[in-house]
Design a protein around this nucleic acid. Structure first.
Length: 504
RNA sequence: GCUGCUAUAGUGUAGGGGCCAAUCAUGUCGGCCUUUCACGCCGACGACAGGGGUUCAAAUCCCCUUAGCAGCACCA
């Protein structure tokens, strides 16, 4: 066998056992399966833990979908945990937006937990941690503490007795300190090679702004509340970005102090997303200053923005599962997302004509014709659109330029003569074969008397024109404007259609 | 700077010592089909970051280099 050149092997095999060859080279696309999770065989408890500072975007979708994927795969519970322990980063409107976005993604959430409901629990565990000598209240200036930390030196507060710490802690809770005046620190290892690990903060005081859901001034930092919650809620597996690797190590100290078993962690790599704005603060500013129309502006990477453009949740889900939980840094590919969306949307979308940048022209010698154009070429049972040509039509300007002939789709051929730079059209027969033979483009058109104004909104800018009257019935649906691409019909106002371009 | 993680076609991914002359998708190009530049079908293009080492055998294990990323907050 080895003596036969590989190229020859295939042809030989083809002669000997063609069915074997076919099996060997059959390209079956198996549904993508992500690597198994350690210790998940008997079910999992996982969580998606967004911060209510704005709506969800594609970055969130990755965490949300991947955790959901494993919950679906192994069975178990999926907790939506709203991490609202920083009043400064809470947008009261975001709570509702989060739930909408989770709903849009069809996450299989079984429980919803608000961390702001659980402050007393965190306080209780903080007291315990102080009691067992795992934490202390630090009243140093933050800048001073930082210097000491970098020098691997203890701050004076670190040596306080448990009783002193408990007193100070109570004083914090009683409002005896102001913002910045005191912080609870977890005792770790001052000589830890990674300065990020040294005596990190667990609680702080926030006086302004007031939390929209709870009356408090002492708030846990995420490493404390997350560790306590992951344990109390029985989280078995955590999938999150690698920006949390350091946090995982910090949280480990808390698990160890309490003698808890930490969950299994997977940290996926950074995902860069080009072409849209993702930072919540950047989006917020842009909306406030009028650069963006709102959280669903098509230049943003929020789920509501891409949904508005006609991207289906299932496409997002499928794209995220394809990306998976690899630790490599990746760049998110809109192309791949669009391809997946097209697969979902193409069989459903009805076809219509949209004529951008229209020119109205009378066609010389044009017979009156009733054109029947299929709503979907692969599904005749859906029926037809009826377009009546009485001789005057509108055509996309760009399709005429430089041409001597075109065919109007589902209608007839027209000759184009250029007189003083203006197109003069003449009926040139019905035969499709003529158009084929001449390799003439078959273009979209509309009767001059039966058209609806339509604006196709793209990221690059708006495109004005006209579309078929029946598009008005497609609000909320994705349609295909023939030869242009897929678009979601967003609204109809004053008889004009507002459409958002999805992709080709 | 310190601490850590990662490196497979343009993009995303599979492969974790021999089955790799490397998977699948997407993309691009060509063809077929078609009254859309859609869908579908056929074909082509395109990658193991670089250098050492271990081994009979390395994309796979080890080391170095390079590059990217993350963290070093009283954010999450």
């Amino acid at each position: 066998m080895a003596a036969i050149p590989p190229a020859e092997r295939r042809s030989r095999l083809d002669e000997l056992a063609p069915e074997l060859l076919q099996e060997l080279f059959e390209t079956r696309e198996r549904p993508r399966e992500l690597p198994p999770l350690k210790g998940a065989e008997n079910g999992v408890v996982m969580r998606f833990a967004p911060n209510p500072s704005g709506p969800l975007h594609l970055g969130h979708a990755r965490a949300a979908v991947l955790n959901d994927y494993y919950v679906q795969r192994y069975g178990g519970t999926y907790i939506l945990r709203i991490e609202d322990t920083d009043p400064r980063r809470v947008d009261p409107d975001a709570y509702a937006m989060l739930l909408e976005d989770v709903g849009w993604l069809s996450l299989h959430v079984t429980d919803i937990v608000y961390q702001s409901d659980r402050l007393d629990t965190y306080y209780e565990y903080c007291t315990k941690l102080i009691e067992i000598g795992g934490a202390y209240v630090c009243t140093c200036d933050p800048e001073r503490f930082r210097e000491l930390k970098l020098a691997q030196k203890a701050c004076p507060c670190r040596g306080q007795l448990v009783e002193e710490n408990l007193d100070l802690w109570q004083r914090m809770l009683d409002g005896g300190f102001h913002e910045g005046g005191a912080t609870v620190r977890v005792k770790t290892d001052l000589t830890h090679p990674d300065p990020a690990m040294r005596d990190f903060s667990a609680f702080r005081i926030v006086n302004v702004p007031i939390h929209p859901r709870v009356d408090a001034t002492v708030y846990p930092l995420m490493n404390f509340s997350v560790a306590v919650d992951d344990h109390l809620l029985g989280i078995t597996h955590v999938i999150r970005g690698k920006d949390h690797i350091a946090n995982t190590r910090r949280q480990r100290y808390i698990f160890d102090y309490f003698g808890w078993m930490p969950p299994v962690y997977r940290h996926y790599g950074r995902m860069s997303i080009s072409g849209v704005v993702l930072s919540t603060s950047g989006m917020r500013e842009g909306i406030a200053s009028g650069v963006y129309t709102g959280w669903d502006d098509i230049h943003l990477g929020t789920l509501r923005a891409i949904a508005r453009r006609g991207i289906q949740a299932e496409a997002v889900r499928s794209a995220m599962v394809e990306i998976g939980i690899g630790e490599t840094d990746i760049s998110f590919s809109w192309e791949n997302l669009y391809a997946r969306n097209k697969a979902i949307v193409d069989p459903k979308a009805n076809r219509y004509f949209f004529v951008p940048d229209p020119v109205e022209v009378a066609i010389g010698n044009a017979p009156r014709r009733v054109a029947q154009a299929a709503l979907h070429p692969n599904d005749p049972s859906r029926g037809f659109r009826t377009l009546i040509c009485e001789g005057t039509v509108i055509l996309p300007r760009a399709e005429l330029e430089g041409r001597g002939m075109v065919r109007l789709k589902d209608l007839f051929n027209v000759r184009i003569d250029w007189v003083d730079g203006r197109p003069v059209l003449t009926y040139a027969g019905d035969a499709l074969e003529d158009a084929r033979r001449e390799k003439v483009p078959i273009i979209q058109w509309l009767p001059a008397g039966a058209k609806v104004p339509c604006v196709l909104r793209r990221q690059e800018g708006d495109q004005a024109g006209f579309c078929e009257p029946r598009v008005v019935e497609e609000v909320g649906n994705v349609v295909q404007f023939e030869r242009i691409g897929f678009a979601r019909i967003d609204a109809v106002s004053k008889g004009a259609v507002d459409a958002f371009f999805a992709h080709r």
